[in-house]
Design a protein around this nucleic acid. Structure first.
Length: 463
RNA sequence: GGCGCGAUAGCAAAGCGGUUAUGCCCCGGAUUGCAAAUCCGGUUAGGCCGGUUCGACUCCGGCUCGCGCCUCCA
């Protein structure tokens, strides 16, 4: 089946054609590690995680690279403020990011390159750009990219180079030939963090690390490059300028960008200060609830974050887990078994169409309806297996249903107490003392525990 | 100002030129000792103005409103 995906470069959906048959090389811009990751980061991480899982499930041989930017001005400034070496700062936040990713069920990428481990590659690429006259060493010790030499500058973000020139900020002290030029290499004093280079001591500019690392990991030309909503300009535009000028070939075939996560209609971002960190949200909500929230909308659409949206996400997941409650022992369906499922066919069709996760979830809900109608049949077990397999492609439904449904906050009534009361209620029911049975149920209800009687016994969950 | 995106029922969110999206909520029924869960049925749509068409939420044009990028940000 054809994979269609929206390409920022052409501003339309295109049929995906791999460079090498059956293989996909994908590079995604990861985080700059000077603070905890917020939900906006989580969205990018989850969206590309789902893409990676889905592509692999469809038999693609995927190489997924997601970098860590561990040297940059913000990092140095934050380390300075903290009075600590920048490496201890970045080390701490890399650990934190890995923790957050693991909790959200995000599989590690195949390669996770760090900028500081590729200074040689960076210097080599800057050197090439200087040799090709796409870059120049300025009087202040910086090396800049010569934008006017790259005729296609602006092609990704659909900007007119002339207009960029007109709108550029005027900086009198600037050593640039042209206000559009951007730094490839920044001069560093001896007291500052830096590496030796042909242009003296310095450190990389913001965009060059991705050009260098993607080349190192995937080559000069690869299939998919992804990132957050604010990266097409200037970051990815500059990456294209650097890579295509240095390598002399087309850089990336498909540019894929996630949509923004908003709060009260405004973008959640560090500069606006309106962000929720992943760990804050995970204090109160199950990781799968956060994942569900993030894939409940198309990856390019804006998502408005709110408490209500999380509650709704949880309700949706409860429907899935409720349906799976009696099929704990059923393993996820094998690919062969899935081939016959009409729900799976709809699910795959949806995801192949520019990763339409919302429509894929709709297919799962339709499966749930059939599953719930067939509690005891063998067909129900097959459906449960299919549901688990689809969930796993989305990175959901990995929890034992009871564990998900009974998960509570710290001060909630304990599971042991609930079980004890249920046992007592069972005795009361057996004695046909319904008044006592209802009293117990009301008591549990007031503790946020809902009971579900069935011929096989009583199940419970928290609201 | 430049470039781009969006406007769908109570809320969230998709596809589609004509046929039930889906989830949450709400109403009715079945089921239940009573509930819950579940199933069945139901209510509530497509910003505004034109145009194309036998027929438009879906295509085209205009308008209004909102948002994003253009500056560090995923």
């Amino acid at each position: 089946m054809t994979l269609n995906l929206y390409n920022t470069l052409t501003r339309q959906k295109e049929a995906f054609k791999p460079i090498q048959p059956g293989k996909i090389s994908m590079y995604v811009c990861g985080v700059t590690v000077y603070d905890y990751c917020h939900l906006g980061h989580a969205r990018v991480l989850v969206v590309f995680d789902v893409m990676a899982r889905f592509l692999r499930s469809q038999g693609w041989d995927l190489t997924y690279v997601r970098n860590i930017t561990d040297i940059d001005d913000k990092i140095l400034r934050r380390a300075e403020e903290n009075g600590e070496p920048y490496q201890s700062l970045t080390h701490r936040f890399i650990e934190a990011a890995h923790e957050d990713e693991a909790r959200l069920g995000i599989d590690p990428p195949d390669i996770e390159p760090r900028a500081t481990a590729h200074i040689d590659d960076i210097i080599a690429m800057v050197q090439t750009l200087v040799e090709k006259e796409y870059a120049y060493a300025a009087s202040n010790g910086d090396v800049y990219y010569r934008v006017k030499h790259f005729k296609e500058y602006g092609k990704l973000s659909n900007k007119n180079p002339e207009e960029l020139l007109a709108g550029a900020r005027i900086d009198v002290e600037d050593a640039k030939e042209d206000p559009r030029d951007f730094a490839l290499w920044k001069h560093a004093e001896d007291s500052e963090t830096g590496w030796d280079s042909p242009w003296g001591r310095g450190r990389p500019g913001w965009h060059i690390e991705c050009s260098a690392m993607s080349k190192h990991c995937l080559g000069e030309h690869f299939d998919i490059h992804g990132g957050g909503p604010d990266l097409p300009f200037p970051h990815h535009e500059n990456e294209i300028a650097q890579s295509e000028a240095a390598n002399g070939c087309h850089y990336v075939n498909y540019w894929v960008h996630a949509g923004a996560l908003r709060v009260d209609g405004e973008k959640m971002s560090k500069s606006l200060g309106n962000f929720f960190t992943i760990r804050d949200v995970l204090e109160k909500y199950h990781p799968e609830v956060v994942r569900y929230l993030l894939i409940g909308s198309h990856y390019r659409s804006p998502i408005n974050y709110s408490e209500d949206s999380l509650i709704e996400a949880r309700s949706g997941l409860e429907r899935f887990y409720g349906a799976l409650q009696n099929y704990v022992d059923v393993p996820p369906a094998t690919p062969e078994a899935l081939a016959d499922s009409r729900y799976y066919r709809d699910f795959v069709t949806a995801l192949n169409d520019d990763f339409n996760t919302r429509l894929a979830l709709a297919a799962m809900y339709e499966l749930v309806r059939e599953l719930n109608s067939e509690k005891s049949s063998e067909n129900a077990r097959l459906l449960a297996a299919e549901l688990k397999a689809m969930g796993s492609i989305l990175g959901l439904l990995k929890e034992a249903p009871e564990r998900f449904l009974q998960a509570g906050a710290g001060d909630d009534i304990s599971a042991e107490k609930v079980e004890a009361l249920i046992a007592e209620r069972a005795e009361a029911k057996k004695a046909r003392n319904f008044a006592r049975a209802d009293e117990i149920r009301d008591q549990l209800q007031s503790e946020g525990v809902v009971l579900q009687d069935s011929p096989d016994g009583t199940q419970w969950r928290r609201e």
